[in-house]
Amino acid sequence: MILLRKILFPFAVLYGWIAQFRNFLYDKGFLKSYSFDLPIIAVGNLSVGGTGKTPQIEYLIRLLSANYKIATLSRGYKRKSEGFVLADDTSTAAILGDEPYQFYKKFPNIQVAVDADRKNGIEQLLSLPNKPNIILLDDAFQHRKVKAGFYILLTSYDDLFCDDYILPTGNLRESRSGAKRADCIIVTKCPKAITDFEQNEIKEKLDSTVPLFFSCIEYDDCIFSSNESKKVNEIKDLYKLLIAGIAKPKSFFDFLKNQNDISLTFPDHHHFTASDILTIKNIAKDSLIITTEKDYVRLKDCIPINQLFYLPIKTSFISNKTTFDSIISDYLKITI
């Protein structure tokens, strides 16, 4: 795979030129970016997948939903619907996509919508009788057709954008210079014990002029099904089947796994087939099955409820949480 990526380097150069030319057209006004008369916060990355966008959106929902009417707007990756869809009681993961459906189930007091055309999605949300006064755009850093008021750029600790290359040689969707559009940068999935020295080294590598933060993933101390919960420390030594269809599942497996467990890895946003379900049931038999929160919304109707559990995660700032919260608060005070 590494050799193939090196062979494809000329295509990476071409891809980079195309992405850079597109950004030039937006920057100079040849392609129009649309602004809206309400705060729009975009969370995204320069690379493909696995930087923790979902827990960061959930962090913002928890931070803001007590005082504002929040709507999330996502593309709805791999959903089986088209156009604008506003989540309601009839929605499923297949209709919304797994991550928006997760938002809808976890946060019933917010509006959750999907639309590949973010401009149209925002216009649809603003036409609602109970329209939001803040919109959170999920995975929209490259969606230049809409000009958000505040951009949060995520980069993973173990795969910093400054060390990466353009697709297909690397994982970058656009050149590293795209980071200049960010209003703040968060280095995600850091070790909890990251030192000040290492943080300063990363700051120097990223060479950014905007506020820089470091966060980590925290796992819940319980796993959950649709009707019960169990303490992680009580099931850690039990035989279980662990399932993950996410971009970077290693930390999920490491948190739960003992030497006798079996782990099954599927592609990110995987739609589980009847054959997949049969394989899972045959391997697990009567044992506990634990999956990620994102995969649970696609598996919950296929596995017995007393057997299938998920492990929630959330993002946590290693330091300067108050500073980050204040930056968001100050932006909202100016725009509302």
Rank of each mutant, 00 (worst) to 15 (best):
112 V>S: 01
76 G>A: 04
47 S>A: 12
242 L>E: 02
134 I>G: 02
31 L>Q: 09
61 I>W: 00
322 T>G: 06
313 I>D: 03
251 S>I: 13
158 D>K: 10
37 D>K: 08
321 K>E: 14
90 T>H: 15
295 D>I: 14
91 S>Q: 12
304 P>D: 08
217 I>F: 07
321 K>N: 13
71 A>W: 00
137 L>T: 00
34 Y>N: 06
97 G>D: 05
163 D>V: 15
53 K>C: 05
134 I>C: 00
96 L>R: 04
11 F>C: 03
134 I>W: 03
116 A>D: 08
228 E>V: 15
34 Y>L: 05
263 S>E: 09
34 Y>D: 04
15 Y>R: 03
96 L>N: 00
37 D>W: 10
52 G>H: 07
13 V>T: 07
45 N>H: 09
245 G>S: 08
324 F>C: 04
222 C>V: 15
161 F>G: 03
28 K>C: 10
325 D>A: 07
25 L>M: 14
321 K>C: 11
228 E>R: 13
219 Y>A: 03
65 S>P: 11
133 N>S: 04
249 P>H: 03
86 L>W: 13
101 Y>W: 07
62 R>H: 12
77 Y>D: 01
117 D>R: 09
159 D>W: 13
309 F>P: 03
54 T>E: 00
319 S>V: 14
221 D>R: 15
312 P>L: 06
101 Y>D: 00
27 D>Q: 13
233 N>F: 15
188 T>M: 03
238 L>V: 15
206 L>F: 13
184 C>V: 12
87 A>I: 14
228 E>S: 13
53 K>M: 07
84 F>N: 00
148 A>M: 08
116 A>L: 12
290 I>Y: 04
249 P>N: 02
220 D>A: 11
54 T>A: 02
139 D>W: 00
59 Y>R: 03
188 T>K: 01
111 Q>I: 02
